[in-house]
Design a protein around this nucleic acid. Structure first.
Lengths: 302, 302
DNA sequence: AGGTTTCATAGATACAGTCTATCGCCAATG
DNA sequence: CATTGGCGATAGACTGTATCTATGAAACCT
């Protein structure tokens, strides 16, 4: 049985006339005669009572017409829904974001994203890199914003912008008097985030250390870390986007001598069909952050 | 778009695997690959994200699946309903019956019809010949039981049984003393039904009259007529099947010398597709009434 | 590294849908 | 009563498409 035949059936039932029904369907009259006959054979039911003056549905046909109309309506609904979904820049877009980025990046890009891609319903999902990659591979995320490279042939990524680190110092710290701070000078009393945060490893690597301070601090969030530094418990490396918040908490910020930093990327499954959406989201973010890395590195982060 | 493709889509969505879905559909794997791809092209929407390890529906596909399932379910419903309707001896059967036949024939044949054709839901429709033919031609009846021949190439009919007339007399009527009554002897004081009843014309014709008594009586039903005769207002011709009821009302019945009577037929549109149902109904009625005409003509009508 | 699994592609084939042309039937008409 | 027109059915040719087998490409596992 074919959907086309069902439409033919509806047309004949509606017009009560093979010729006019054929015209309405855009086919020839014999086509309808043959197809309706075939349909009757397949169903084992006479659908129309033909005479030279009228073509009227049999009672059996009347009983079937409801289902036929419903089936045709559903397929029309499929086509209509597909039309709505056709735009890859529309619909839900689940975007993972790491915790050291989300609170500072999202306020910057949310409005531009909504403006540039009004049909895209972006659902941010905040978690650490490992968890995000897991969800990405499990099709539970459409893309993720990370500060690390991704591995494996099933994933792909693209750099959106570079985010320099800044030295974060308590106001009374000796280094706070210098205009520029060398990364390795921070190694002595640097505070870092808890395990799992990519920023932890990157900060330690930048200042030449392989391990953290002896388990004394397990800051779960950058916000906690900033408060600890502001209270004089040590120094830290602060991602450029968090500069404003860091200053507000009373921390002194200084550019770094070696320009340590990280690259923020958008990652997706290499087979993800809505590549266009990923690229559009990436483009909006990159555009919003254009020139940011240079400005941040110069220290003009306000 | 094709229903087959929709079934393929459901299979792939269900199995998450082209090979197994193909097996379930009874086609080869390349067939599914090609058809799903074509469907994606037609809808303009990516339906599955393929990799060598998994085939998972896209969010767009998830949204469409509901409609797809509904469409396929409706077509299955069409097939199922057609299976039920396939038997021409099943379903509604609208049967017209003339008023001088219905009250006496229906009680006789209703049970045998139901027994012989349990799936046939017979809906009797009582009206005069002209109205029945009109409804028959308008497809509002499937067949009709009449006592006249039908005219025109669009209708056909078949005699089911012969129904003799009997003389119906008041007990005190002079003719009541005779064992057999001649039709023409009734002409003097015969009472007949109102216009439109075929029995009216047939009774008048049988006793050799062309018009009725001077408009004095317009009996709308045989029952009224019987009561009038029983009350001594005149004589009448009574169809054999009504003999029992007539006797119960106190009328004297006598066989007719010339064996006047009428033939009861079943009529249908010559193009009516459920000829088998018509013939089955006719056969049951004819079988139930077999031998009736002879018995009635002999006067053994009890 | 080699074999296995899985989906995609290519080319051949068979079937099904459609067309034009024509027939047969019926009805209306001169 | 013969003719004409309208309508659906049928025949035969053609075209497009769904399907098959065979093979390719990529990823995964041993």
């Amino acid at each position: 049985m074919n959907l086309r035949d069902l439409r033919y059936l509806l047309a004949v039932a509606e017009h009560g006339h093979f010729g006019r029904a054929a015209e309405a369907c855009g086919v020839s009259q014999p086509t309808l005669s043959v197809q309706i006959r075939r349909l009757e054979d397949q169903l084992g039911v006479a659908l129309f009572e033909r005479s030279s003056k009228s073509v009227s549905p049999t009672p059996a046909c009347d009983r079937l017409l409801g289902h036929v109309r419903a089936a045709v309506a559903e397929t029309d609904a499929i086509l209509a829904a597909a039309r709505d979904l056709r735009d890859p820049l529309a619909g839900r877009f689940r975007l993972g974001i790491i915790p050291t980025l989300a609170p500072y990046l999202l306020p910057l890009v949310f409005a531009p994203l909504h403006e540039a891609l009004p049909a895209l319903e972006i659902e941010p999902w905040e978690d650490q890199t490992g968890a995000l990659l897991e969800r990405l591979r499990a099709h539970e995320l459409d893309a993720a914003l990370l500060a690390t490279e991704v591995e494996g042939p099933d994933l792909a990524s693209m750099v959106l912008f570079s985010e320099p680190f800044l030295a974060g110092l308590p106001p009374e710290h000796p280094l706070a008097t210098r205009p520029v701070v060398a990364e390795e000078d921070l190694a002595g009393d640097i505070l870092v985030l808890a395990d799992g945060h990519c920023l932890r490893d990157q900060a330690l690597a930048a200042c030449g250390r392989s391990g953290a301070l002896g388990g004394s601090l397990r800051a779960a969030s950058l916000s906690t870390l900033l408060n600890m530094v502001a209270a004089g418990y040590g120094t830290t490396l602060i991602p450029g986007l968090a500069a404003g918040v860091a200053e507000d908490s009373g921390i002194v910020l200084r550019p770094l001598a070696a320009r340590a930093g990280r690259q923020v990327r958008i990652a997706w499954r290499s087979r993800f069909p809505r590549r266009a959406a990923v690229e559009a989201v990436g483009a909006v973010i990159a555009s919003r952050l254009r020139g940011f890395s240079e400005a941040a590195a110069r220290g003009s982060w306000s």
